[in-house]
Simulated scan of single mutants.
Amino acid sequence: MTQINRRTLLAGAAATGALAAGAGLAAEDIMTATPDLTGKSVLITGCSTGFGRLASEHFARLGARVFATMRNVPRAESEELTQIALDDQLDLHVIEIDVTSDEQVEAGVARAMEINGGPLDVLINNAGISFGGPIEIQDMEATQLTFDTNVFGPHRMARAVLPAMRKAKSGLIINVSSQLGRVIVPAYGQYSPTKFALEAMSEGMAYELVPHGIEVTVIEPGGYPTMIWKNANENSLALLSRADEKHTSGYSALIEQLGNRTGGGSTDPMDIPRAMAEVIAMPAGTRPLRRAVHPGPKPQIAINDLTAKVQVGWLGESGYGPWIKAVHNV
């Protein structure tokens, strides 16, 4: 029997691309075709607005069973999604999960698996938070909340879904990071530190989960016009209102911009759900560790390529080598 692994699957994908080219189709046309997510169960965090809200409806319309989670249910956003699901007969279920709560994470994931009748196929850690401003003015309240949401939240969620995924020997975790998880812009507070941590945690998990048939992909968006900017501005102003002058006095130019930041321009936030859907639809064993998504510059790609080369060069021939090479499709 032919052994199916990442290399053979990639070879098959390459052959498909060659056939498509012979038929007058470009290989990238295959990747940008509308994916079919029929039969996939997907749990997404942070679905009240932004990428999570868009992804939940998009995936359901592609045939997936979607568990759209958010804090503080019931709320207008949860009622809207529930009504859309009823009106359009979508397999979409709204569940309350605050990713900073151990109890809500455990209860929400258990409820999703109960509805699904078994382990989930995909977990998407999308919920995130940001406070602007120099690192020095970030007090412990802001720092702890940022890490609790952006790092410990995805960790809680992964721990909740992984036992069942490991038992099933399959699964996919998608962690939504940022360009700022690989490159740094001053005065974005603890946002980059948390996203750097999420990137490292994701890569470590990706290696460790190879023997269990579970993959991890990091989505790295650039700037998009979502509610994160409005929320970050409000968080930043609240932080400034309680900040001590001894911490703020050295950063007048950086502090001046807080509260009125915008980003993304005319970019389409649907780029992110589309990219995630493509990753979900890919054959197991061929999914990338990282995917940068933005129509403009993607400075993190050079870093991603270099770190992959370093990891393979450093550990590729060690006892961890098969895991490292599998994740980097070597």
Rank of each mutant, 00 (worst) to 15 (best):
T82F: 04
Q83L: 08
Q83D: 09
Q83K: 13
I84D: 01
A85T: 01
L86N: 08
D88W: 02
D88G: 00
D88E: 15
D88Q: 11
L90V: 03
L90T: 03
D91L: 07
L92N: 01
L92F: 02
H93F: 14
H93N: 12
V94Y: 04
V94D: 01
V94F: 05
I95Q: 06
I95G: 05
E96S: 14
I97H: 04
D98E: 13
V99H: 13
T100G: 11
T100M: 14
S101T: 12
S101A: 09
S101C: 10
D102C: 09
E103M: 00
E103R: 04
E103T: 03
Q104M: 08
V105M: 06
V105S: 05
E106N: 04
A107L: 00
A107E: 04
G108Y: 02
V109D: 00
A110E: 03
A110Q: 02
R111I: 01
A112W: 05
I115Y: 12
I115T: 15
I115W: 13
N116A: 11
G117T: 13
G118T: 10
P119F: 02
L120N: 11
D121C: 13
V122K: 13
V122Y: 10
L123E: 09
L123I: 12
I124N: 07
N125H: 09
A127N: 13
A127R: 14
A127K: 15
A127P: 13
A127T: 14
G128S: 14
S130V: 14
S130Y: 14
F131D: 13
F131W: 15
G132M: 15
G133I: 09
G133F: 10
G133S: 14
P134D: 10
P134W: 08
I135L: 14
I135E: 05
I135G: 03
I137V: 10
Q138K: 02
D139W: 00
D139N: 09
M140I: 15
E141P: 07
A142G: 06
T143S: 06
T143I: 12
L145Q: 12
L145V: 08
T146R: 02
F147E: 00
F147H: 05
F147S: 04
F147D: 04
D148F: 02
D148V: 05
N150R: 07
V151L: 12
V151F: 04
V151C: 01
P154A: 02
M157C: 11
M157L: 10
M157I: 08
M157F: 07
A158L: 08
R159L: 12
A160G: 03
A160I: 03
A160P: 01
A160D: 01
A160S: 05
V161F: 00
P163G: 10
P163F: 08
P163I: 11
A164R: 03
M165S: 14
M165H: 13
K167E: 10
K167S: 07
K169D: 10
K169F: 09
S170R: 15
S170G: 10
G171S: 12
G171E: 11
L172C: 01
I174S: 01
V176H: 03
V176E: 02
S177H: 04
S177T: 12
S177N: 11
